[in-house]
Design a protein around this nucleic acid. Structure first.
Lengths: 178, 178
DNA sequence: GAAATTTGTTTAACATGTTAAGTTATCCGC
DNA sequence: GCGGATAACTTAACATGTTAAACAAATTTC
């Protein structure tokens, strides 16, 4: 398994004369988005099997996880905390409710708002998954180094902040980009 | 706007007697997967509008971008480089081919393999998008600091490496997790 | 206080992520 | 050289990402 077959098969153009395509702009595989994507994927690959064994997707886990921290939460707030877009959250909540992992009611003060909370069944599920999850996280932490991990997260947070500023700054309507 | 409504609404239980939900395990929003997800999203949010103006999704752009660096590439290799799963790539290539942005033929040496290359139309599209893209990237770089950005990428790469090792190590079949 | 606007949430439509199964072409052993 | 394993894709099926539109309830305007 993992034969590592020669990745450049029959590619023989050492000099580059027939090069119709030059200057890749940037190594591409080293672009920031790709780096972040690969790193995150590498992390999630560790957790997915365990979640899957418990019949949960990553996003469903995020939601249940967020719900354990509060008594009740409104849909919009939950979307913000679990970092999901409204439509995704809407669908997932429908499914989680059908599986009796969460409970919903509408706020009496504002009938538009929905209030969500985890059910006892949901809590049991969380408790069943948490140990494995924590173990994996601990393993990652010790392997990478707690200090370094914290530093990485700080850098990511700062990147986030800086980009948030860019958005308010340069956005001249965005239309008509030729 | 951004009312910052008290996130713990009617939550007044300082000691924790009626606590049905305790110990969030971790601040959650500070978990590594969430940090990486938010950071990446913050980055992509900068690029998406421009790509959209040119009728490209992020993944389509990744593929075309990867194709400009080579003369021809096999589907599997392309999947590895653009970091896409086979099925996703398969669908996207079908669409890109229908739009005449790429060209495909089967390798004569191995009829299973498909060889992909960018078309002249695809190249033109890339050339139209690249300037804006590069400008955004430059802006991000200067705002965050080139030095720091490189350091971040190094740390991400190391994280990836470490996690790759974890996979070969601990994987006792994964079945029967309770 | 009714019309216009805004807000909270859901539905719709299309693209991708993810795993499993299907197809066709090679390879490998005997 | 045939038959079973492999390999390279592709299809299928279901879940989520993403943007736009629909909807109903609340808020603002006049």
């Amino acid at each position: 398994m993992a034969g590592k077959k020669s990745p450049n098969g029959s590619r023989s153009d050492p000099e580059g004369t027939t090069e119709a395509r030059r200057a890749p702009m940037r190594e591409f595989s080293r672009s920031l988005p790709m780096s972040l994507l690969r790193a995150r994927e590498a992390v999630m690959r560790q957790f997915r099997p365990s979640l899957r064994n418990h019949g949960l997707t990553e996003q469903q886990w995020r939601i249940l996880r967020a719900l354990t921290a509060v008594d009740t939460i409104e849909v919009t707030e939950l979307a913000r905390v679990a970092f999901l877009l409204g439509p995704s959250l809407s669908r997932i909540l429908r499914d989680l409710e059908a599986r009796d992992l969460i409970e919903r009611r509408t706020a009496k003060a504002d009938l538009r708002r929905g209030e969500v909370s985890i059910s006892s069944k949901g809590l049991k599920l969380i408790e069943a998954v948490a140990p494995t999850s924590e173990a994996i996280y601990a393993e990652i932490t010790s392997r990478y180094g707690a200090r370094k991990l914290a530093e990485l997260q700080d850098m990511l947070a700062e990147l986030e902040r800086g980009l948030a500023e860019m958005e308010v700054a340069g956005e001249p309507d965005a239309e008509a980009d030729e």
